[in-house]
Amino acid sequence: MAVEFNDEFLRSLEQGWKVPVGVSEDEQVRAVMAQMREQGLDPNRAGVLRLVRDVNRSLASGDVDAE
């Protein structure tokens, strides 16, 4: 079974997701999950939590800057 995605969906994925700073980890997870749902995705909370923690670790280590 092949899955095809339309261009609009692929463009929305290219934009990525914004993880808010200065809020609790739970609020970060909820915000990212809401963004994913707006893109038509069905996010997995554990996966989003892992993504949020990776971003927070990168911010703490100075690997990335908060925008």
Rank of each mutant, 00 (worst) to 15 (best):
R37N: 07
R53L: 07
S61L: 10
D42P: 03
D63P: 06
V3G: 04
L51V: 07
R57Y: 00
A60W: 06
M1L: 13
R45V: 05
D63H: 15
E27A: 15
Q15T: 09
V19A: 05
V52Y: 04
R30K: 15
L13F: 09
F5D: 01
G16D: 14
R37P: 06
V3N: 10
D54V: 04
S24W: 09
V19N: 05
Q39C: 12
Q15H: 12
L10P: 01
Q28K: 15
M33Q: 11
K18T: 15
Q35G: 12
V19D: 01
G22V: 05
L59T: 11
D54I: 00
W17I: 08
V29A: 12
E4N: 03
M33P: 02
E67P: 15
W17K: 00
V48Y: 03
R11S: 11
N56R: 11
R57H: 02
G47F: 13
V55M: 03
V32C: 10
R30L: 10
R50V: 00
F9H: 12
Q35M: 06
V52I: 10
E8K: 06
V55A: 07
Q35N: 08
E67D: 13
E4R: 04
D63C: 06
Q39A: 14
N6Q: 03
A66S: 12
G47M: 10
E4C: 01
E67N: 10
G40I: 05
D26A: 14
V52N: 02
A46K: 00
E4F: 00
L49V: 06
E8Y: 00
R37E: 15
Q28N: 04
V55T: 13
E38C: 02
V48D: 01
S24C: 12
G47D: 05
E14S: 08
W17Y: 12
S61Q: 10
G22S: 08
R50E: 01
S24D: 14
M36V: 06
A46Q: 01
G47R: 10
G62V: 08
D54N: 11
R53W: 03
A66P: 12
L59W: 10
V19Q: 05
L10Y: 00
F9V: 13
G62D: 13
E38A: 14
